[in-house]
Structures are given as structure tokens and as C-alpha cells.
Design a binder for these strands. Structure first.
Lengths: 107, 107
DNA sequence: ATTATATATAGATACATATCTATATAAGGA
DNA sequence: TCCTTATATAGATATGTATCTATATATAAT
């Protein structure tokens, strides 16, 4: 069975950057405002803003505004779904798409 | 503790493309030659060759040559390590890097 | 030797993206 | 009202990449 490669590749693309992986790690213990996240990095504030936008657009990070601050948090349900997708992807199953096309006996 | 974001982002980057996710899925039941993989797609043979190179360079796919054929297979150890990394990443732990910088009390 | 076949490489094009500086927005405090 | 602060957006630049066509390589078959 064909899995949802398009949808999941969007989330994976958002994670395919070392700084954004670190941001996820930083958020893994609870929500933080942008300025606290920025403390961990050498890049500029607009660059962090860009990274947070990428993470939010794929749904893996949520945002809550309060006064001047933006509080970011991990969407743990989305995280779990991504990991489940990957586990399904690499596991051999009865209804795997590999069975949907002929394999000519190479050997 | 800082995780290995650089190393893992390379693997994740290789997976951050829907066609390559499908290739991983196709390989999840065992090794296949390039021509059998190509059967599943509309793109050209050089494009598949490019995708396989990307997957091999990050170590998630291995290749075995036999005569005219290249047999590709999933590196399941690498797959497991990636999934373990992601599970660690999104889990709150005692020694998370989020504790390594001050959090100014926003609220 | 010549031909056919499976795969890889080279080079081009079009598009995406990580970063920066400069500026805008929007909320609070003096 | 004016200034400060936190964050977002705009625009530019440099780099990366997914795809193609054309060609090379390497093995097998006739």
C-alpha cells in the first residue's frame, strides 16, 4: 500500500536542517519564547523567525502569542505520527508497494 | 546534551523527498536492482541513478554489483539509528540542551 | 569484434532555501 | 504620545537540488 510520501516529506524536509533539529530538541521539554530559543544560536533573529515559520508550516511546531512574546511548542502528536510513518516505511509488510510491480529475475 | 544534528540531518535530508521515501518503502522487503525500482516511477533512469546516489551517500542504502546489475538494499541498522535519534530528539530528558541556556521569565 | 543492455556521469535549466541587512508591525511602558 | 522591545516581513545573494538530454562505462551475448 502506498504511504503518504508527499505529506510526510514536507515534515521531513522541515527537519532536514541541523539548526532546526536543534530547535526541536530545545523545545522537547516544553514551550519557549523565540528569544530564549535564539540564545542557543549564533544566527540572527530574522533567521530564527524563518526557521520557526518552516517548522510551523509543516505542523510540527505550534505557536501561542502573548503580549510581545511568541511561545513555541512541539506538536507531539505530529512527532509521533512522523516516527510511526518512518517505522512503517522501513518495515517489510504484506501489502508493501514493492509487490505491486513485477520483478524480473535478475540473477 | 547536544545530539548529533549534523550527521542525522544528512540522512534526514536524503529522505526529504517523496520519491526517495517511496524508494525506501520499495526496498523495505529486500534488495532490488535499479531496473525493478524504476518500474514504479515515471522519471528517467538518470534521475533514479541520482536518487540512489543520494540515498547511498548518507548510508541508508547499500549497493551490491553483480554483472550488469546494481542491487540496492536498505541499511536497516542506519534506519533504526535514525528512528532512535528522532525519538530521543522529541523526548524530554534530564540532560536536554534546553537546560544549558537561561530562560528569562517571559510571563 | 560488434551489438545490446544496465547503470553512471556530465552539463544545463529551473526552482528552492539559508542567510543577511533593513524595515515593518505591534504591544508595553515612560 | 513617544520610545523600547519582541517578532515578522521584504528583498538580495549564494548555494543546493530535481529533472532532463546526451553520452560514457562496463558487462554479456551473438
Amino acid at each position: 500500500m502506498k504511504l503518504n510520501y508527499e505529506e510526510n516529506s514536507k515534515v521531513i524536509k522541515a527537519l532536514a536542517e541541523p539548526n532546526r533539529l536543534q530547535i526541536i530538541d530545545i523545545l522537547s521539554c516544553g514551550e519557549l519564547c523565540a528569544c530564549d530559543i535564539l540564545e542557543h544560536f549564533d544566527f540572527t533573529q530574522p533567521t530564527l523567525s524563518h526557521h520557526m515559520k518552516v517548522l510551523m508550516e509543516c505542523g510540527i511546531v505550534d505557536c501561542r502569542k502573548e503580549g510581545l512574546w511568541s511561545f513555541y511548542s512541539l506538536n507531539t502528536s505530529k512527532c509521533n505520527k512522523l516516527i510511526l510513518f518512518l517505522m512503517n516505511l522501513v518495515t517489510d509488510t504484506e501489502d508493501c508497494i514493492c509487490k505491486e510491480k513485477p520483478k524480473h529475475e535478475c540473477k
